[in-house]
Every structure is written in C-alpha cells, then in structure tokens.
Write a protein that binds this DNA or RNA. Structure first.
Lengths: 149, 149
DNA sequence: GAAAACAGGTTAGATGATAACATCAAACAA
DNA sequence: TTGTTTGATGTTATCATCTAACCTGTTTTC
C-alpha cells in the first residue's frame, strides 16, 4: 500500500493537487478496508485518532480523492472504495457481493463499448457510467455464505 | 396514464397485492413527473393534498411500488421513476441527462448479456444490475442546454 | 509583505431513510 | 355474527447521509 500511496502522491503533485496528511489518512483508511467504507465509519475512525472530526472533514477529503480518481463512490451502497488502478480511466464498474460485502472493480472495455453503442443509437453523449452489479461472488457461492442482501 | 394505471391495478390484483388509493396516488405522482422524483418531494406533494404525511407514508408506498415493479429507484440520484414497461423484467438500465434531468429507461439485452459473460468468467452470480449512465441526451446536445452537473 | 487561493475547523441544518408502536379496516374462520 | 388475523396506514422519534455557510490559518503568487 505504501507504494500505491507514493504513486498517488506523485500523481497528485503532477496535477497540482496536494495529498495532505488528512487526505492521505482518509485514503489509507479506504484502502485499508476490504469492503466499501461508509463516510461515517471514516468519520468515527478519524475521530479516534484526531479529536476533531466533523462530517465536512471527511466529505471534503472524499471529494478530493474522488476527483483525483483515487477512490470510487458506490451509489447503491452510499459507500466508498479505493480505486484499483488509479492511473487508468475510472471505469466505475463493480461486482458487489451481497454475502461478504466485497466490491470487485471491473474494467470491461466490452461493457463500455456496448453502452457506448446503445447511447450513440439514441444520440446520448456518455459522461459517466455507474455500473453496480449485486450478487454472489465465487467464494460465497461455494461457501454457501449467508446473504446480507 | 389512466390506462397504465388500470393495467397496474390489474397486475397487482392478480398477484394478491392491493393498489390502494395512497399507493395509487404516489404512483400517479411518480408517473406524472418527467424527471425522477425525490421521496421528500412526494412527501411535500402528499402533504398538500391530505394533511397527514410523514416519511414512512411515502417510503412504504414506494417500497410497495418497487416490489410490484411499477417504479424504479435510481441510486445515483436517490430518486424514483415510473417503470416504462411494468410487465417486463425490470432492466434497471438508465440514461440520465445531467442537463434536463430526464432518465430514459433502457432495455438492452446485449448489455445484460455482456455483464452476464463478465460475471460468469469470474464465477460471480448476478442478482441485480444497477446501470446508470449520466451524460447529455440528444435534445440537450443539440440545444446546448445548460449542464446541471 | 499583501493579495489570492487553498485546506481545514466549526456550527448548523437539509435531505434521505427506518424503527417501533398504535390504530383502523378488510378478509376470513368459527 | 363475532372474534381473529392480516394488512395498510398513522404517529413519533430517531438514525444516517450529505451540504451550506462562515471562520481561521497556511501556502502560493505577485
């Protein structure tokens, strides 16, 4: 993760953005979770480390990280995940397991292409795609894990 | 719309569900809007007609309508739209114009198939797909409409 | 060093959603 | 009919998510 952080730092610096200690800490917390994190969980975590942390603290950091392409927001969960490949275009495609809660980032050009084709046929100009597929991951199918829904 | 309502009513009756006046009214309000509606807008609208309306009133009606497949929820907007073809499977695919706010429902089997293929390759079992493409609709591209986001 | 731009603290509140319990009416069985 | 069950809604309260607005301090830039 520290290598990823250095890369993130460098990429911010290159575009004139600053990965401040606070933002960096929030990024670590997001990356440190194996499932999507809620803003208020981050808030609680920050509240223990620092003794000042109000919602805007977290949301501003998250906004920054979203803009920088370092994290993604999962709309159907109101939660955030670290971006798998920060450098690349943010696909915003996820497979979300309702049993274990993991959100696997997908990057399927075929999917993007299919969408682009549909959109074009209707004269629609795509800006951002939100693709969130809920279901059961391979592990949980095998394990017969309890569904969280 | 009244024809659509009769159909909705019939389809509810067939499955033992009841499209009560309240639920019917909420459905009308949702269908009556040309853009996705927020729960609290519905609440405000109801509050004017009846003089009793608290959040659960609206959310329960919406839950019912969602279950009945008469409306869809758009996660990225926290809003609701009427389902284009209630009888059919709910695709949950939308093209959302950030300029005029309209959400056009899409039903692209190709898209569903592409997703199914990706998921299968990873051993993932798809349960529900949330596909929300934001961008500019054909009209707004031509009109150079102001972007809302 | 002054001005501008940026980061973050702080307070407050808007918006979105649910829990828990009470009431009433429809459906149905005895 | 009467009583019971179920379902729909009312009601109160609260939790969860997110944002506005204003202030302070710290970089940057000129």
């Amino acid at each position: 993760m520290s290598a990823a952080l250095r890369k993130a730092d460098a990429s911010c610096g290159a575009s004139g953005r600053r990965l401040t200690p606070l933002r960096r800490r929030v990024l670590e917390l997001v990356w440190g979770s194996h499932t999507p994190v809620k803003a208020y969980d981050l808030l609680a975590a920050l509240g223990k480390e620092r003794n000042q942390a109000a919602p805007p603290t977290v949301y501003r950091a998250l906004d920054f990280l979203l803009e920088a392409g370092l994290v993604h927001r999962i709309a159907s969960l109101n939660a955030f995940v670290g971006c798998g490949e920060p450098g690349l275009g943010h696909s915003g495609q996820f497979l979300i397991c309702t049993a274990c809660g993991t959100a696997a980032e997908l990057d399927e050009p075929a999917l993007t292409r299919t969408i682009a084709a549909s959109a074009e046929r209707l004269g629609f100009e795509v800006r951002r795609e939100t693709i969130e597929i809920a279901g059961l991951c391979a592990d949980c199918r095998r394990g017969g894990g309890k569904d969280r829904q």
